[in-house]
Amino acid sequence: MKVATMTMRGCLLVLASLTVGSAGGVLAADDINPASETAKPTEPAAAPEKPKIDIRKLFATNCSWCHQDYGMKAADGPKLAGTSMTEEQLIEQISRGKSPMPGFRKTLSKEQIEALAKYIKGLKDPGN
C-alpha cells in the first residue's frame, strides 16, 4: 500500500513566489503576502523571506471544482464573492470543512488557509 510521507513543510517549499492576482480581471484581494512587508533594506541577511502565496494558483488547485471563476460564480459550491461570513469563520470552514465541502487543515498550511480566507473576504460581489 502506498502511503503519504510528505509534510506541510514540504508543501510550503514548493509554493511559487508570485504576486497576488485578480480573477477575470475584476477581482482584487488585499496584499496577502506579509513577508513582503517585513523585508527591510538595512537587514538583508535577516531570516529568509517567507515564500509568497499565489492566490490564483492556490484557489485553482484546491477550490475550483466547486467554486467557479475564482469564487465569483455559484455552481456546486456557492458564490464566495460577497460572503456574509467573517474571515475567522472562513478560516474555520476551510480548515475543518462542512460536508460536502472537505476540510483542508491536513493538506494546506495555516498561512495558505488564512490567505484563502482573506482573498475570499476581499472579493467584491458584482451582483450577478
Partner: peptide, 12 residues
C-alpha cells in the same frame, strides 16, 4: 505547483 507526492491533496 505540484502538491507533495502521495499527499492526497486536491490538484485541479
Amino acid at each position: 505547483d505540484p502538491p507533495p507526492a502521495f499527499s492526497g491533496q486536491a490538484y485541479f
